[in-house]
């Protein structure tokens, strides 16, 4: 997709550029929050986890900035066609990315509770699952910045891997809990962590659909979704 020509009113392009920059920063922070929460989990590092919780405030503030920027863009520039679709998408994407940040924060908050207790097998799977979800977030924000619908489709396709991880981890944790009730507390926390990552993948997929619509004006039909993650209880 070729880059759209510049607006006659240069300040319009500058507004759009700034809006994209805020979204990119939000996405970067959310992605980083997820990675650091998982690293803290892996190393039982409560201090690092605390930093993730604190940094989430920054994402919340940026969401407000996006809202202000979009309201201003609509009021002052009266965007139409792809510009209008992008402005609306930016507003929605900001609230989804904020939610992704919350999931990372939620994962980090569980680290202190997991400080005691030995490693159980699923713990080794979570970083890989989290890495894929983090990549989806990264890729979808690249797609947004470049108005690239193909990249958006690619993001949706990756969601299946995240769902598969979730189903696998769910079953393994269930087995651990049944075999050894002492692991229940830890396993329950890890189950929530896995669920949070699975939700991050879903949200990245939602963002991908918004990016696709903003870029093309069409809905992403027959979304190439992964297997149904709904078999285990949500």
């Amino acid at each position: 997709m070729p880059a759209p020509a510049a607006h006659t009113v240069k300040a319009f392009d500058e507004d759009v550029r700034q809006l994209r920059a805020i979204i990119a920063e939000m996405g970067g922070l959310a992605e980083q929050g997820l990675a650091e929460a998982l690293r803290a989990l892996r190393h039982r590092d409560a201090e690092a986890a605390m930093r993730v919780v604190e940094n989430d405030n920054r994402i919340d503030l940026l969401e407000l900035e996006v809202e202000n920027a979009v309201v201003q863009l609509i009021a002052l520039r009266a965007p139409l066609a792809d510009d209008l679709r992008e402005a609306v998408a930016a507003l929605k994407i900001a609230s989804v990315v904020e939610r992704i940040g919350d999931y990372a924060k939620n994962i980090a908050k569980r680290v202190p509770a997991l400080e005691r207790g030995g490693d159980i097998e699923p713990l080794s799977l979570l970083p890989e699952m989290g890495r894929i979800a983090g990549e989806m977030v990264h890729l979808v924000l690249d797609a947004f910045a470049a108005r690239d619908p193909d990249k958006a489709v690619e993001v949706c396709q990756r969601d299946k891997a995240v769902d598969d991880f979730y189903n696998s981890i769910f079953r393994t944790l269930l087995t651990h809990m049944m075999e050894n009730p002492h692991t229940i507390t830890q396993a329950a926390h890890l189950l929530f962590v896995a669920k949070n990552i699975e939700r991050i993948g879903d949200h990245a997929t939602n963002v991908a659909e918004m990016v696709y619509y903003a870029a093309t004006g069409e809905r992403m039909s027959e979304r190439p979704r992964g297997g149904d993650a709904g078999s285990p209880p949500r």
């Binding site: 759209p4 020509a5 006659t8 009113v9 319009f12 965007p79």
Partner: peptide, 10 residues
């Protein structure tokens, strides 16, 4: 059409 209505004209 898009270039015109979005103010990207020439």
């Amino acid at each position: 059409t898009k270039d015109y209505i979005t103010g990207r004209y020439g």
